[in-house]
Design a protein around this nucleic acid. Structure first.
Length: 465
DNA sequence: CTAGGGTTAG
């Protein structure tokens, strides 16, 4: 009987690998002996591999409390030491979830697992801060870096260059590029990817194409599909869709470059924008011929096309169905796109319905979902509903965008919205969504005395921040 | 998934 229920550490690893659902995987991990809780325990000897698997599963599922618990359990293990790579993952998970504090904390604790930190985990941390939008943090980490402890590598510079471009400073990016070469660190294809992408995003197509040539001639680095996708997007955004399509044809002839769904997603979005929906079918066929499956982003590009350009919401919903048929789960972008489309057409009730339906569709609305609908309601003059939505989003910890806050406050100032304005302003204050000027304009006669006091208190706090 | 591309919002 015992042999039927006993699971070896090795077997646990394979089971964990197969279990897609993080919650179930955790259950499995915590109770590896399938039955007989009565048979007591010598402690189960978890393998390092099992820890890797469960921690990464939990991190991907953003079950951070559980992930930390398992990390702690692992720290008590003496039979093996943890690889730095696992901490790199953990730091990235926090970065992707925009949790800079925990990311830093994870980095700080690596030595307590008897694991030596290298430039790799430092790079992970740097990148996590970039993902969190903490650009000044990226700067300070870089400034305070002790190069005797961590020797910067190409990856370090790639993150720094990315940070520079995303703060809009191409000049700084080039300085870093020069600096790394002075130090004898060879730029990688990722370095050029970042630079080409930034040039394209700034409509500097000529420079982008020049750099593409130089990377091979001067630096011996071959352009890959990432580089080409940036270039194609750059062409699309400067009204050169036909050139973009030609470039795609040229790449098809290149032996060692494999096109992928990202490149096709770019083209599909651009075709819709140019009113060339008819050609999308051909593109989809081409993908099929090449064995490239549309992914969620590809479908989202079509949804955006149908909503923004074609105003064909039935078709957009049909794409959702198509995704279901092909086993691609619509994500928050899929829904946000439709919500935005409805709002642009002033059909905020439809947008609202969809947002309410998202949980049933197993997708949690995010800050963009709420901001989009909130602004849509304000634009349509539906301030009462906007106020209700505001309460809900504040409750969830989401702040509306600055522009819609202004619209909202101005809208409330209109015909005798007195009773609604006060509570709504308090909500805004709670998430500090409005600047001081907005308050001073807004706090007229529409707020009663106790509410005024509340708002003034919040204003003081705003001033101090 | 230590670094680069593609879809939404601002």
């Amino acid at each position: 009987m015992e042999k039927a229920t006993k699971i070896s550490p090795f077997r646990l690893s394979s089971l964990l690998r197969l279990e897609k659902n993080a919650r179930l995987a955790l259950k499995l991990f915590r109770n590896p002996r399938a039955t007989a809780p009565a048979t007591p325990p010598k402690p189960f000897r978890y393998s390092a591999r099992s820890y890797d698997l469960i921690i990464c599963k939990l991190g991907r599922a953003r079950m951070f409390a559980e992930m930390e618990e398992v990390l702690h359990q692992m720290s008590l293990e003496t039979r093996f030491t943890t690889k730095e790579a696992l901490f790199c993952h953990v730091i990235s998970f926090y970065g992707r979830a925009r949790m800079p504090g925990p990311a830093l904390h994870a980095f700080d604790r690596i030595p307590s697992f008897r694991c030596r930190r290298t430039i790799r985990s430092f790079n992970s941390l740097l990148h996590a801060m970039l993902n969190c939008g903490e650009l000044e943090r990226v700067q300070s980490l870089w400034r305070d870096l002790d190069e005797r402890e961590f020797v910067p590598d190409a990856c370090t510079y790639n993150v720094l260059i990315h940070a520079a471009t995303s703060s809009g400073s191409l000049g700084e990016a080039w300085d870093l590029f020069d600096e790394m070469r002075r130090k004898g660190i060879r730029p990688s294809v990722a370095t050029f990817g970042t630079l080409v992408s930034a040039l394209c995003a700034n409509s500097k197509l000529d420079e982008a194409f020049t750099l593409k040539k130089e990377m091979l001639k001067l630096h011996g680095v071959k352009p890959n599909v990432y580089i080409y996708t940036s270039l194609i997007k750059g062409l699309c955004n400067t009204n050169k869709l036909d050139l973009a399509l030609k470039l795609k044809e040229k790449i098809l002839l290149e032996k060692d470059i494999k096109l992928d769904s990202a490149m096709y997603s770019t083209l599909i979005r651009a075709l819709f924008r140019d009113g060339r929906k008819g050609e999308v079918v051909r593109i989809l066929e081409e993908m099929k011929e090449k064995g490239i499956k549309p992914d969620t982003v590809t479908y989202n590009a079509m949804i955006a096309g149908f909503c923004e350009d074609e105003k064909d919401f039935d078709a957009a919903f049909e794409v959702l169905n198509e995704m279901a048929r092909n086993g691609r789960k619509p994500d928050v972008v899929s829904y946000n796109t439709i919500i935005a489309g409805f709002c642009k057409e002033r059909r905020w009730r439809h947008a609202s319905e969809l947002l309410e339906d998202m949980p049933r569709r197993e997708c949690r609305p995010d800050v963009v979902s709420y901001r989009t609908l909130f602004e849509g309601m304000c634009d349509a003059g539906a301030f009462e509903e906007a106020g209700l939505l505001l309460d809900e989003m504040v409750f969830k910890g989401y702040a509306p965008g600055a522009v819609s806050v202004r619209k909202f406050v101005e809208g409330l100032g209109g015909e005798g919205a007195g009773d609604r304005a006060g509570p709504a302003l308090c909500s805004l204050a709670k998430v500090k969504a409005a600047g001081v000027e907005v308050w001073e304009k807004a706090v007229g006669d529409s707020v009663n005395e106790s509410e005024l006091l509340e708002v003034v208190k919040f204003m003081d706090r705003l001033r101090m921040d």
